[in-house]
Design a protein around this nucleic acid. Structure first.
Lengths: 212, 212
DNA sequence: TGGATCATTTTTGCATTCAAAATGGTTCCA
DNA sequence: TGGAACCATTTTGAATGCAAAAATGATCCA
């Protein structure tokens, strides 16, 4: 197995899944499940530690990182800057096909909203934001965004929403698509910022924090 | 030696120093010079590869990364977004002591400008930008900034400047300090953006690129 | 002579091993 | 009984060993 593959599989286990924040990372088990030895696994752990997904306690193993309130605040602040930048860059660069793709995602997202299917809604939502970042055509930006997104995913895409917030989010997303179609870079950046700031408030209000 | 220490020493060797972009990274020699075995060195290499400072060629070792024109463009775009965000966040958060520190750096930077001492000028310049990022009080932002800064350092702080650009840069820095002192977040973000965009143009014009 | 082929050496990636540190459990004594 | 001290076991971090891949270079033939 390739080094990068170990990193992504481990990242997946940590963000999407089986190992909750704060939990001990079972080195031996993961070695067995990935069918590799400790050396490549430990290399991947160091990489993810540098990314902030893993905390290494000297001589006491590694744990899945927990988000403190401050972490949430910082991650959202940076995410806001990155998404706004992505929006600005995407406007002049986005292709018609990409634009269509986002419009379709938007449509099915609205469907899921009508059906009150939060999980499917979040999936579309996330795909839209990722598509905008992709349209910015900047690999460095995309890399940072992915790293931030991985850390904040639980807070961002799991927190339940109040009906008011959900309705507002839908409205904002229409504004986002609109600005993109008009190629209104400044307008798009502005909506993305308020959109994310609102989400952040919601997350903070929901008291999301995984402790110290 | 601690894991993080190996990473920073290796980073230093790659950015500040002895191993030029594109050069082969001599694993055995570095092991000897750091007095460690290959295992911890390889862990550090993977971390820096994830950061983009090192490229790993499967079965063919690792090399110091070279910046392509596209890399330079992408890095400056993201750097712009991060510095602007840092400026906006710093305005309401910066302490008087930090403000004084930046004012002092600014003063000595002007001194070095008068003396036409490019190297010392760049050192102050860099310290000012880093101080603004620090004043933003956001560890995630600071981490990303450090990672970006490490990669474009050569382009940003080594490229010679035309007399006109240098004079302009000094002017802009006065504007930066001014906006900070007035706590004018929007204004500061704007100046930082144009400041960096101008630098980017200068770097591109100087034809900086380390090849493919 | 030029270049293709194959043996030799070096390098790479990973598994394994080893020493040091932490963990857990038992005993012993106030 | 409570906890301090000790020892066995496990886990961690790093060095070493090993097989496979790549680089080197020697040989041979047109």
């Amino acid at each position: 197995m390739m080094h990068d593959e170990v990193v992504s599989r481990l990242r997946h286990v940590l963000t999407e899944g089986e190992i909750p924040p704060g939990a001990r990372i079972p080195e031996r088990e993961l070695c067995a499940s990935f069918a590799i030895s400790r050396t490549p696994l430990r290399e991947a752990l160091k990489v993810l530690a540098a990314e902030g997904l893993v905390v290494l306690l000297p001589n006491r193993g590694s744990r899945a990182a927990k988000l403190t309130q401050k972490d949430v605040k910082e991650l959202f602040e940076v995410c806001e800057a990155l998404e706004a930048a992505a929006g600005e860059l995407a406007c002049p660069r986005i292709s018609d096909a990409q634009l269509r793709e986002i419009a379709e995602l938007q449509a099915s997202m609205v469907e899921h909203y009508r059906a009150q299917d939060l999980l499917s809604y979040y999936r579309c939502n996330r795909l839209i934001h990722e598509a905008i970042v992709r349209a910015a055509d900047n690999a460095v930006l995309a890399g940072f965004y992915e790293s931030i997104a991985a850390r904040i995913r639980r807070a961002r895409f799991i927190t339940p929403m109040s009906p008011e917030h959900w309705a507002l989010a839908i409205q904002e997303h229409e504004g986002i698509l609109n600005a993109l179609q008009r190629r209104d870079a400044g307008g798009l950046a502005h909506i993305l910022r308020t959109h994310l700031r609102r989400k952040r408030e919601e997350v903070v209000r929901a008291g999301f924090a995984e402790g110290e």
